[in-house]
Amino acid sequence: MKATNSSKPKFSSALQILGLALMVFWFATPVLQAAETLKLSARLVWGTNRDKSADDELKAMTPKLKSKFVNIFKWKEYYEISKKTFQFPKHEGKQVRMSKKCEIIMKLLDKDTLQVQVIGEDQLQRTVKHPLKPILNDGDLFVVGGDDKDSYGDAWFLVITHPDLGKEHKKEK
């Protein structure tokens, strides 16, 4: 009887500690995540077969990125309309205006899922989810593209990359 009585409080306090630990773990995870930030780059690119006229003040895409595009897409020329590098808390997300008509909202859904929402002319066009690791660790490019509504035969591209990608490609392909 005695032994039984003395063992009961020990068992219940062990349970309490375990419960407390679980609660701390449960609630601390988002807090820890909140402290982390994510840094990415986004480029808005225009693809065309037209020759650049002297009047155009268009910035050509970097040769490294262009060579990738040329190997995949049919357009000969790729011009960078805008480039934004931004940092944001992982749990919050970030809205970035890429041009007058185009905006994107980036958000991390979980540890390795990046959500990109493409907004064109103030209307949500598409929500795309993509693994983050290939972008950050392997130097992969994540591209969302579409036909240019104002210029038949041309295209726009939204290119999400590691912020240092334009400087040096991390992975030898």
Partner: peptide, 13 residues
């Protein structure tokens, strides 16, 4: 859209 779909000459706008 895709380069490998047809030759550039054929697709040239």
């Amino acid at each position: 859209r895709w380069k490998f779909a047809e030759s550039i000459e054929e697709m040239d706008e």
